[in-house]
Design a protein around this nucleic acid. Sequence first.
DNA 1: AAATAAGGCAACCGCCGTCCG
DNA 2: GCGGACGGCGGTTGCCTTATT
Length: 434
Amino acid sequence: MGRHSCCYKQKLRKGLWSPEEDEKLLRHITQFGHGCWSSVPKLAGLQRCGKSCRLRWLNYLRPDLKRGAFSEEEENLIIELHAVLGNRWSQIAAQLPGRTDNEIKNLWNSCLKKKLRQRGVDPNTHKPLSEVENEEDKARATNENNEKSSVGSHEIKTAEHPNMGKALEESGRYPLEVSLGCKLNTENPAATPAAHDRLFRDGCFLTTYDGCATGNLVGQFAFQQPSCGLNIGLSKKPDTTLSFNSNSRSSGSHHMLSDQFNSSVLPLMFPFMSTSNVSTPTHIKHSVSVALDTTTNSYGGASYGFRTLGATTAATGCNSSPLATSNTEVHINSSFFDRFSWGLTDTEKSSKEAQIQGLEGNPEEIKWSKYLPSSSLLLGTTTIPNQCPEVPFATSDDQSSIAWHQSNQLLNLQDSDISSKDLQRLAEAFGQIF
DNA sequence: AAATAAGGCAACCGCCGTCCG
DNA sequence: GCGGACGGCGGTTGCCTTATT
């Protein structure tokens, strides 16, 4: 292992390539191909290392390169792909024929980041800047509090919730976090639950938060397993069409939600719940149902909770303590999803989505497709109209589709041999899209 | 017109994974 | 199994050009 041997060689030219060098390299490769790059400079009569030749060819000389400025479509595609893939420039470049990873990286660093900021979007997270700033403030405040108390957040939570320490210890994971942003009660804003009203019981979190602070949402709903960044959710907007915006930890499609989000999926999503030794259910039923009152653009009520198998004790309403129940069964009912007027279409498919799906079929070229599942969980046939005001140029359906694919694969990775680094990368990808 | 700052871009650096002897 | 060679990738640097003062 170690550095490339050519790095140690002397008398090799560095810096910009002269036209003569370009000509030599071009002539050699068009005539003989590059073969082994380390032998190219010698055969082509160049005082360069093979690596430098390779880079020059890939980034400048190869004939299929597209010259000129990036089109708006290309820029938008890069932004969307970056939301999913992060700084994996080579994989992004694979989706833009004739463009190099270096070119895209430069464009991103010099131009697109700035554009996103001007649009109020954080280029790292693809969330609205205001939200990112809020999160940073919260994180700062949390850190300060932790420092003051000289106790880590984990310990604080454990102290608050006696079972949690055991849960963490035995499951080896962070607890499941179920987030329910309940409603925007336009007539009685006070009825909206307090932000991040977090309750813990038996290894799981229920977090309610006011997802409506922006005024754009009438509700949010999300599942989260912080340890792997998995977070699935949806939001509902006043126009009564469902939306997956880039910051709602959203994913999936109508089919995912209504058909796939069933009792067989949740244990996959949150495997620790069925495997840890804490008092988790042996059978998990999913029941979160929210009745939408379309006349007031608010949820008429939210039913959610953990309940004992066969005995629903989920609380109703948004401001109660739904975990005043005795046992631990996450109860998420698909009827939750059926209460909406979805306004979705099965047939609409953007060209970008088609591109993305196209890449899934070519694992040799698109390496991140290896993360995608081949199981029936993989959906991606339905798109959702773009309802994402925060990222007006991004089609949230594409992103959410990818997110869902990746989240599924993430789940399927539990038993795979994929490395922790891969998982980390996936989690990072999730962090960026969410 | 000169100096300085900012932007854009090409190339390098160093790390990592894979291949192969 | 080990280690060197190599290809690939993302981060960074530094040069050149353009804009601003």
